[in-house]
């Protein structure tokens, strides 16, 4: 496992259109205003467009340049943006290898991410539960899932967390007699484990040497939830509901990082090219105010984690 800096935040959603990128940009905007150095990395390996939302039509440097080894580090790709203190690593678009990196490419990318010189690195992941997306998500010490009160989003957000959970466990089962336990064909059989507890029971019997490592990995897995586009106070309960199901069935801890009300302005911004500038003009009201609270918590948590790591090291 590559040790990533405590300021690394991976933002996923399982479903497209839930506002991941807008939430990421808004948080980055406020983190910059709070005088943090922020790097945004477009982690949608197959469909990068964060640069477009920041008004950059054709980025001069992208992740392609790193994958093709034209530049040695990701720092070489950082582009200044119109947001104070926020720089961007644009995603590639013309390298098929980037959409499906092999193990060596993925490891090199993760190492390079760990080496970026910045206070906070926000990785905006693509939709879906591809293994590469899950690996980037799990590699970050801070993981965020954005969802909306839409049923499809609730289901996909939970599905994403569940997929991440299984990916994590499957990694721990490599080289054990149960290495195939979570293969799709096996896992879809009747009687296959449906809860963490059932899964642990099978591992304890089938691969007893791995059970402690599996439980530790799951214990360490904490996921933050942001509920976006809330239209009524009731809809805010979507976060606790997903948390409860994660706890009960997966044994995964979740925290509500924030809730953002539906703001029609955001949709209008999404149609515009200069979203960064529009965010700046939005002032402190509504959705952006909530994004400030989220950014503040992200900074605070990063500070705490850094402090704990320093204490442990000393």
């Amino acid at each position: 496992m590559i040790g990533m800096p405590e300021g690394t935040w991976a933002i996923a959603g399982g479903k497209g259109g839930v506002g991941k990128s807008v939430v990421t940009l808004s948080a980055a905007y406020w983190l910059g205003r709070l005088k943090h150095q922020v790097a945004l990395l477009d982690g949608d390996l197959g469909g990068a467009n964060l640069h477009t939302m920041l008004g950059v039509r054709i980025p001069p440097r992208t992740l392609d340049d790193f994958v093709l080894k034209r530049v040695p580090t990701l720092d070489d790709l950082l582009l200044d943006t119109s947001l104070e203190g926020v720089r961007l690593i644009a995603g590639g678009s013309d390298t098929p290898a980037l959409a499906n990196p092999n193990y060596a490419q993925k490891t090199r990318l993760l190492r390079a991410m760990a080496a970026i010189e910045t206070d906070l690195l926000l990785v905006d992941l693509g939709a879906g539960t591809s293994l590469n997306t899950l690996d980037l998500f799990l590699a970050a010490p801070n993981r965020v899932v954005v969802l909306t009160p839409q049923p499809t989003s609730i289901q996909n957000a939970y599905g994403f967390i569940k997929a991440a959970f299984f990916r994590l466990v499957a990694k721990e089962l490599r080289g054990t007699p149960l290495k195939n336990l979570l293969d799709p064909g096996q896992f879809r059989e009747a009687g296959a484990p449906q809860t963490a507890e059932e899964l642990f029971q099978e591992i304890a019997i089938g691969a007893p040497d791995a059970i402690d490592a599996v439980k530790r990995a799951v214990d360490d897995l904490e996921i933050h939830l942001i509920v976006n586009m809330i239209r009524s106070p009731k809809e805010e309960k979507v976060g606790p509901v997903v948390s409860e199901v994660c706890r009960k069935f997966l044994g995964v801890r979740t925290r509500i990082l924030g809730a953002i009300p539906y703001d029609p302005k955001i949709e209008r911004w999404a149609l515009a090219m200069e979203q960064g500038a529009l965010i700046r003009q939005a002032g402190d009201g509504g959705a952006l105010r909530c994004a400030y609270d989220i950014a503040y918590r992200m900074a605070d948590r990063t500070r705490q984690a850094d402090s704990e790591r320093t204490k442990r090291a000393s």
Binding site: P149, Q150, P151, I154, Q155, Y158, K162, F187, R188, E189, A190, G191, A192, Q194, T195, K234, E235, K237, V238, P240, V241, V242, E244, V245, K248, F249, L250
Partner: peptide, 24 residues
């Protein structure tokens, strides 16, 4: 639904219906 780990999804929907109040 029955065997593909959907017991949790059923529980998820029951919570959504009781707490959020709609399932479109």
């Amino acid at each position: 639904e029955l065997i593909d780990g959907r017991r949790d999804v059923q529980y998820l929907w029951s919570l959504v219906e009781s707490h959020v109040g709609r399932r479109s």
